[in-house]
Simulated scan of single mutants.
Amino acid sequence: MSEKLDKYIAKKKLAISDLGRNIRVNKVCYLFLLPYAVLFITFYVLPMLTSIYFSFTNYNILEKPDFIGARNYLNLFLEDDVFTTAVKNTFLIAIITGPVGYIMAFIFAWLINELPKWIRTLVVFFFYAPSISGNAYFVFKTLFNDDQNGWLNRFLANMGITNAPIMFLTDPRIGMKVIIPIILWMSLGTGFLSFVAGLKGIDKAQYEAGYIDGIQNRWQELWFITLPNMKPMLLFGAVMSITSAFGVCDVTMQLAGYPSTDYYARTIVTHLFDYGFTRFEMGYASAIATVLFLTMILCNKVIQKLLNRVGH
């Protein structure tokens, strides 16, 4: 055990020595990177570390943080039933809108890649429009409004199908079935655009060489040529898909209300917003943020391992 530890320490020392030598040799390059590094550390790394520290405290902004150890985490996992509901809802949204949205975005990008330029431009705009307009959910709010002024309720009443408005966004039995497809459509944009750009950047000569080497159909072309060439875009799309899936907050709050009926549309970020900006319990909110951060990192690692197998 001691020998393994000594080897590990020696390996780390060698890595640090190599890093120092690399910095000295390429100091001009590192100087150019310095402004971005300072901004990244100041506005990303330090706030993250500060949030992790506050997650072990009782902190309400106005008073000095009081260190309480892991109490926030114990309360979060053992006593907070609303957080349990938020976790279930978040993972339900993530499982449906994450992988499904990711796969749909790639399939649509792949299918329209061979379309004429003007048609492709219209389709890209249709998918990317929700990402451009962050308030697209207001259209759906009007469409599924619970009173008789809602477009869908008015249509159903005029057709004689219903006698009373359907509570699309208030009834917990119906609400998530309405909200999840809306979130799915609004999450397609960024990943879809990156896939379109990646497909257009693949050298056509590779396809010609592939058919010479024995590729016989479009599926083999996709697996052995398209996907390996698009690994950076696939990873970017996966990260954006995970981030958007776990970061759902505004759509559910605007459509289902804040708080929603029986917390049926509660998500982890909504729970974080509640404790951080409504109750000002920043220590507890920081614990929620830390759990969410670690979950997203774990999911990203899993996605990276899966993507590394593509084309192998």
Score class of each variant (00 low, 15 high):
Ala289Tyr: 00
Pro165Met: 08
His312Met: 11
Ala285Cys: 07
Glu281Asp: 14
Glu79Asn: 15
Val178Pro: 00
Phe168Met: 04
Thr50Gly: 13
Ile68Lys: 03
Leu292Tyr: 03
Thr226Leu: 03
Leu272Glu: 01
Thr190Tyr: 11
Val25Arg: 15
Trp219Val: 15
Ser55Phe: 01
Gln206Phe: 14
Met159Val: 06
Thr278Phe: 14
Trp118Asn: 15
Phe43Asp: 05
Val139Ser: 12
Phe192Glu: 02
Tyr211Asn: 10
Tyr102Asp: 02
Leu234Thr: 00
Thr278Leu: 14
Gly101Thr: 03
Leu5Asp: 12
Gln148Cys: 11
Gly191Trp: 00
Asn149Cys: 09
Pro99Ser: 11
Leu111Glu: 10
Thr267Pro: 00
Lys117Leu: 15
Asp6Met: 15
Asn145Trp: 11
Asn308His: 07
Leu78His: 12
Tyr128Gln: 02
Gln148Glu: 15
Gly276Ser: 09
Ser241Ala: 09
Lys305Val: 05
Phe144Ile: 02
Lys27Arg: 13
Gly247Gln: 10
Asn308Pro: 04
Ala136Arg: 05
Ile9Glu: 10
Gly257Ile: 07
Asp203Leu: 03
Phe195Arg: 01
Trp110Gly: 04
Lys301Ala: 10
Asn58Lys: 12
Phe280Leu: 09
Val25Trp: 13
Thr295Glu: 04
Ala164Ser: 15
Thr84Pro: 06
Ile96Trp: 05
Ile161His: 06
Thr267Glu: 03
Pro172His: 04
Pro47Trp: 08
Trp223Glu: 15
Val124His: 04
Asn308Cys: 03
Phe195Pro: 01
Tyr284Asn: 03
Arg24Gln: 11
Val139Pro: 02
Phe168Pro: 01
Thr170Ser: 13
Lys200Glu: 15
Leu188Val: 02
Tyr211Leu: 12
Thr252Leu: 10
Phe108Trp: 04
Phe155Gln: 05
Gln220Met: 08
Lys231Asn: 02
Ile61Arg: 12
Lys117Cys: 10
Glu208Leu: 08
Val291Thr: 08
Leu235Arg: 08
Asn58Ile: 07
Asp18Tyr: 12
Ile41Lys: 06
Met1Lys: 12
Ile202Arg: 01
Leu62Val: 11
Tyr36Pro: 08
Ile119Trp: 13
Asn72Ile: 04
Gly311Thr: 01
Phe126Met: 14
Cys249Gly: 11
Phe236Thr: 12
Trp118Lys: 13
